[in-house]
Amino acid sequence: MNKKWVVVVLAMLAAQYASAMEIITLSKFQYGKRWAFTKEEVQLMCRPDHALYALNMSTFMQYPLNEKAEQQRKEGHVHAQPIGVILLDDPDHPGQKMSIAPFVERAQQLCVDKTTP
């Protein structure tokens, strides 16, 4: 009986944490030549602590988009890989990767505090 309550409480906490995060899906079709990823679509997420991630839902892997998320990855607080793993090469700038700036900006929009009117 006690194990059931532990599972219920953990499920409620997980649901509460997940509801605090907003996730959106973006596709290559939406961004055209500005698309930066090797995947056809990614999900963007802002955690309550403003750590921004790109997600690959087919593998459940996270990729940090900002310094806060990268620090969490380096410290082992999240299971994530470096963003460079899924970035395309920039055809206009040989030797460089595509810019993630539009995706960081879009993910930051998810961080808006919903408690303010």
Rank of each mutant, 00 (worst) to 15 (best):
3 K>I: 04
3 K>G: 02
3 K>D: 06
4 K>A: 04
4 K>V: 07
5 W>R: 05
5 W>K: 00
7 V>T: 10
7 V>W: 02
7 V>A: 11
8 V>F: 08
8 V>G: 01
8 V>I: 15
9 V>T: 13
9 V>A: 12
9 V>K: 05
9 V>Y: 03
10 L>W: 07
10 L>S: 07
11 A>H: 07
11 A>G: 15
12 M>E: 02
13 L>K: 08
13 L>A: 13
14 A>F: 14
16 Q>W: 14
18 A>E: 12
20 A>M: 12
21 M>A: 15
22 E>D: 15
24 I>V: 15
25 T>E: 13
26 L>N: 08
27 S>K: 14
28 K>W: 01
30 Q>I: 04
30 Q>E: 15
30 Q>G: 06
32 G>A: 00
32 G>S: 06
34 R>A: 12
34 R>Y: 05
37 F>N: 05
38 T>V: 11
39 K>E: 13
39 K>F: 10
39 K>C: 03
40 E>I: 09
41 E>K: 12
42 V>G: 01
43 Q>H: 15
44 L>S: 13
46 C>V: 10
47 R>W: 04
47 R>N: 08
47 R>K: 12
47 R>M: 14
47 R>Q: 13
48 P>N: 13
48 P>C: 12
48 P>V: 05
52 L>E: 06
53 Y>Q: 10
54 A>S: 10
55 L>D: 04
55 L>K: 09
56 N>S: 13
56 N>G: 04
56 N>R: 05
57 M>Q: 14
57 M>G: 09
57 M>E: 14
58 S>F: 03
58 S>W: 03
59 T>Y: 07
59 T>Q: 10
62 Q>V: 07
63 Y>V: 09
63 Y>P: 00
65 L>K: 00
65 L>D: 06
65 L>A: 09
67 E>S: 15
67 E>Q: 15
69 A>P: 02
69 A>G: 02
71 Q>G: 02
72 Q>I: 03
73 R>L: 12
73 R>H: 04
74 K>W: 05
74 K>Y: 02
77 H>P: 01
77 H>N: 13
77 H>C: 00
78 V>L: 04
80 A>S: 15
81 Q>P: 02
81 Q>N: 10
81 Q>M: 12
82 P>M: 15
82 P>H: 10
82 P>K: 11
83 I>Q: 07
83 I>L: 12
83 I>R: 01
84 G>N: 11
85 V>G: 00
86 I>G: 00
86 I>V: 14
86 I>T: 02
91 P>C: 03
92 D>I: 00
93 H>Q: 09
93 H>S: 08
93 H>P: 04
95 G>S: 00
95 G>T: 08
95 G>C: 03
97 K>P: 07
98 M>V: 01
98 M>R: 07
99 S>W: 04
99 S>M: 05
101 A>D: 11
101 A>H: 03
101 A>E: 13
102 P>L: 01
102 P>T: 03
103 F>P: 02
103 F>W: 03
104 V>H: 04
107 A>Q: 11
107 A>I: 08
107 A>T: 07
108 Q>P: 01
108 Q>V: 08
111 C>I: 05
113 D>C: 01
116 T>N: 12
117 P>R: 15
